[in-house]
Design a protein around this nucleic acid. Structure first.
Lengths: 202, 202
DNA sequence: AATATTGCTGACCAGTCAGTCATTAAGGAT
DNA sequence: ATCCTTAATGACTGACTGGTCAGCAATATT
């Protein structure tokens, strides 16, 4: 009749701990995050954290890696499989994707990487290869396809797919730092898309 | 004949300490920065640091505040006093200003603020009022002057001066995280300016 | 030269925290 | 029931560091 003091849940623990860790890292940053607090939020003892993650750094890396991947892949798939015109895709799914970034977990990851990237070069590399480079290639490919289809002209924008996402990055940062001070980030990104389209449409 | 063990230099110490502190904060971030190391780099004992700055946090704030101000004010003055046409100003001094940001101390400050902003809301406010808001107003004013002079059309760009600096922000971040991976940040910013001009020129 | 002033030092303290490990007990196997 | 494996606990340690302060010595004053 005595309640068991805990349950053994080997399968779920790592995910639960990583989930709690993400929250704590998000709030405090890497250095100020306390393993004790991670454990507490996961409803687990500190020792158990160290059973599943050898060090704080490893936990950090696991958490960061776990966040972002699927989102970029979805965009990539959408580009490949869409039946929309390039302009419609830009104004529709692409813009929707970008609007979703500021305020999401992705921007937390950006912050953490900027803050701690120095000391975790392998993490930066992983993130660059699997998120940034992949995303940039996807946009690049999208623009070139537009050119081939005769929808777009060939312009300097072909060389700088970063132009599409620059306002998104600014929006993410703005929201993180200045939440209260008003900036209509959605319309900011829309305006950039308007401008790019006006510039490259055939 | 015995060399004096130290010299008393009340005037210079604070600046020297702040200088060293900037370096250490830049390399390590706020939390991981050690006051001992700051003192060592300033060629000074740890105790002296606490004579001039009451706490680590105060030192941090003093350092951040000391970095950015003059730069933005120079841009503001340049806008007011220039005899160039709006387009010439954009392509000349304005672009030069923006190219100077990534890789400069300013981007270090951006990184530190993103990483530590949470815990220093007054610092964020100070930075917003004296740098961000001021800069945005300056650009806004510049665009509106162009409209009044008949050089520019009135477009959505009037409402989003952030569009001018978004690629600059992306460049700053890119350079910090991915130094090695090539991106011609200067040309990225030029391309944005080209595009904006094409879009708003009367 | 003697005295006063104060910039500066560095040993020290009290608190903190990542990581360890001896121990406990959950729950499957027999 | 009993044993056995191992998930889970949490007290503990050792290293580290922000901040203090009693005293020293470089200069200013007389």
């Amino acid at each position: 009749m005595a309640e068991p003091r805990y349950q053994r849940r080997k399968e779920d623990r790592p995910r639960e701990i990583a989930e709690a860790a993400f929250e704590v890292f998000a709030e405090k940053g890497y250095q100020a995050a306390r393993i004790d607090e991670v454990a507490q939020r996961a409803g687990v003892s500190k020792g158990l954290t160290y059973l599943y993650f050898k060090t704080k750094e490893e936990l950090f890396k696991a958490v960061i890696r776990g966040v972002v991947i699927r989102r970029v892949d979805r965009l990539l798939d959408a580009v490949e499989s869409t039946e929309l015109s390039s302009e419609e895709f830009l104004r529709g799914p692409m813009l929707e994707f970008m609007k979703g970034i500021p305020g999401s977990r992705v921007s937390v990851v950006i912050r953490l990487l900027m803050a701690e990237g120095h000391r975790h070069p392998d993490l930066v590399e992983y993130y660059y290869d699997n998120v940034v480079a992949k995303g940039i290639r996807t946009i690049s490919h999208f623009v070139e396809r537009g050119v081939e289809r005769g929808e777009f002209r060939k312009t300097a924008v072909n060389d700088f797919p970063q132009l599409f996402i620059a306002p998104m990055m600014l929006s993410a940062i703005w929201k993180m730092l200045f939440e209260t001070r008003s900036l209509d980030t959605d319309r900011l990104m829309e305006t950039q898309v308007d401008m790019i389209l006006a510039h490259i449409k055939a």
